[in-house]
Write a protein that binds this DNA or RNA. Sequence first.
DNA 1: ACGTATAGTGACCGTTTGGATACTAATGGA
DNA 2: TCCATTAGTATCCAAACGGTCACTATACGT
Lengths: 117, 117
Amino acid sequence: MTDDCPPTTDGKCPVETALELIDGKWKGVALFHLLDKTLRFNEIRRRIPNVTQRVLTRQLRELEQDGLIIRTVYAEVPPRVEYRLSPLGETLRPIIVALWNWGTAYKARQIEESEAA
Amino acid sequence: MTDDCPPTTDGKCPVETALELIDGKWKGVALFHLLDKTLRFNEIRRRIPNVTQRVLTRQLRELEQDGLIIRTVYAEVPPRVEYRLSPLGETLRPIIVALWNWGTAYKARQIEESEAA
DNA sequence: ACGTATAGTGACCGTTTGGATACTAATGGA
DNA sequence: TCCATTAGTATCCAAACGGTCACTATACGT
């Protein structure tokens, strides 16, 4: 079963296909925050320290183009733009949650190790 | 719960931490093949069309340095090098499997769409 | 005697990526 | 009146990354 990596249409392994869509330094984290609820641009930004406006914009646009999130622009001033998961993006939930759990355990393990020294 | 992205030691979200380790064009796929069984270098290579020797070597070394896989060199000629998941790497199994499942469903959906045209 | 297989390494290159900085518009608050 | 806020865009830069090509050693089969 796990040996099965058939060349469907593009010859790519499904694992590769999936990873391509969340590939981008901040995409995974952005999706994670959107699991919770719809967020405005700056709300996402504030939840991700160290990301620049320029880069976050690009990542969100790519997620939108790939159909994982939905971007809604309200014709107001100052501008209001809301981001939320699309139905397709919603199907990523188990993966994002799994990543969060794994990362959390990994970090905990690291702290244990450093304290054991 | 999903709102929780605490700055543990490095200020990174656990999702980011997890993704960093499997970040690399072929790492996910390589891990996927290793879920099944221990493989020699060229066995992995043959399962991943389009990857070059140079690049695959680098990705595998990084996975080794991050403690996700174990590389065993046998002092033989011609050389024999075996790769297998480490205990830590083994804990990635649910994630890799989830990625495979998701990617498979995604591709199936794409085929449906193209046939509906 | 020759070619093949193994698991690499070294030098180099081009594109992609992320990031720094500065700029925009119109509104609401002090 | 002045400044902050909003969600961007424009320009430019440096580093990272994937990829190409050539090369290595030794044993085995023909």
